[in-house]
């Protein structure tokens, strides 16, 4: 709107008035805020959620604050249709650091797998989910729906997993000890319920493997090779890693409620070129490839230099699979009794 048409209510850029309530949330850093942060860190270390998260849930349930939900309008309508009430928005996060050397490089085991990095992914995901379900449990929810996961890797070895979803309550049913978890939208949840299934868990299959590449494989990819040729040893490792990651996803489902299958599985793969330092003299050491005998994936041998190590070209291969675990409870639209029976079995 042009300045000459503005009226008295036009905001003055110098003074944007935030309400007193809102203004009071802007706190300067002080000894008091530091003490609160330390308290929250201690709570996280001892398996609890920070005070602010707990207070938000309690105030929302007491109707002191409006409820909020990640569900969109069609999802909310369908939720209402199946007597599923959104209670409160719930969150969970974890930053987990994989063991590394002084230069920040992750260790590989004798099979050239980054076992610590794989462990870090699972811990970050499991802790974030545990915190999310703690919030949901506090709200008296039966399940968390529309759980949106975010994974990020920083500084090569620190994994962040954050999840945000909506805790929901099924009318007239006793909540289970551990609420169910669904990464599916409200609409997908509804469709599955109509067909006798219920989403119960979110599962992860992750694997990281390093392939030292020998002369034979390298020569296939050389610019002087004019033939059509498959890199069979690389293909085989690729396939093995994928199988292993999917297997891990299936194993991940075993720790929780009964899962009969997965839907919406997504698979991301990443291959990058790297160099692997293999030490011939000892099994311990620093950096990538601390152990090894210099044998590459195509069976060729890289001679160790005078210092007892060799630099071997390699590929880093990463597999990241996630999916929603679902359980079959009937053959048609589920009734309250079906859901109740399943939830009772969990307690």
């Amino acid at each position: 709107m042009p300045w000459f048409r503005r009226n008295a209510s036009t905001p003055n850029p110098e003074v944007v008035k935030l309400s007193q309530n809102l203004q009071s949330t802007f706190r300067q850093y002080s000894a008091e805020t530091e003490a609160q942060m330390q308290k929250d860190r201690d709570a996280l270390d001892s398996g609890h959620i920070p005070e602010a998260a707990e207070a938000r849930i309690k105030r929302t349930l007491a109707k002191e604050l409006p409820w909020m939900s990640t569900l969109d309008i069609p999802d909310l309508y369908l939720a209402d249709e199946i007597r599923m009430t959104p209670l409160v928005q719930v969150t969970g996060s974890c930053f987990y650091r994989a063991a590394s050397d002084m230069n920040g490089r992750v260790y590989l085991d004798s099979n050239y797998d980054a076992a610590n990095l794989v462990h870090a992914y699972y811990r970050a995901k499991n802790d974030a989910v545990f915190r999310l379900l703690q919030e949901a449990g506090l709200s008296g929810g039966h399940a968390v729906v529309d759980a949106k996961f975010r994974f990020a890797r920083e500084d090569r070895h620190t994994i962040e997993c954050s999840v945000i979803g909506t805790a929901v309550h099924f009318e007239g049913l006793r909540p289970p000890k551990t609420p169910l978890l669904s990464p599916l939208s409200g609409e997908e949840f509804y469709k599955l319920l109509m067909k006798g299934f219920i989403p119960v868990n979110y599962c992860l299959g992750y694997h990281w493997h390093c392939m030292p590449v020998g002369y034979r494989t390298r020569s296939i990819g050389s610019v002087w090779n004019f033939q059509n040729q498959e890199l069979t040893s690389v293909t085989k490792r690729f396939s093995d890693t994928r199988h292993y990651a999917i297997q891990q996803m299936v194993s991940d489902a075993r720790g929780g409620p009964r899962v009969d299958g997965f839907v919406g599985v997504s698979v991301e793969t990443k291959i990058e070129e790297t160099e692997l330092r293999i030490y011939g003299n000892y099994g311990g050491g620093m950096g990538f490839g601390m152990m090894g005998n210099g044998i590459t994936i195509d069976g060729t041998f890289y001679p160790f230099g005078a210092e007892g190590s060799c630099e071997v070209p390699a590929y880093n291969l990463e597999f990241f699979a996630t999916g929603a675990g679902i359980a079959r409870m009937g053959s048609g639209r589920l009734t309250r009794k079906d859901v109740s029976t399943y939830l009772s079995a969990l307690n």
Binding site: R41, D45, C94
Partner: peptide, 13 residues
């Protein structure tokens, strides 16, 4: 291998 609690708490805050 360990959790970076200071990062997690900051994110929560």
């Amino acid at each position: 291998n360990q959790e970076m609690t200071i990062y997690t708490q900051g994110l929560y805050d």
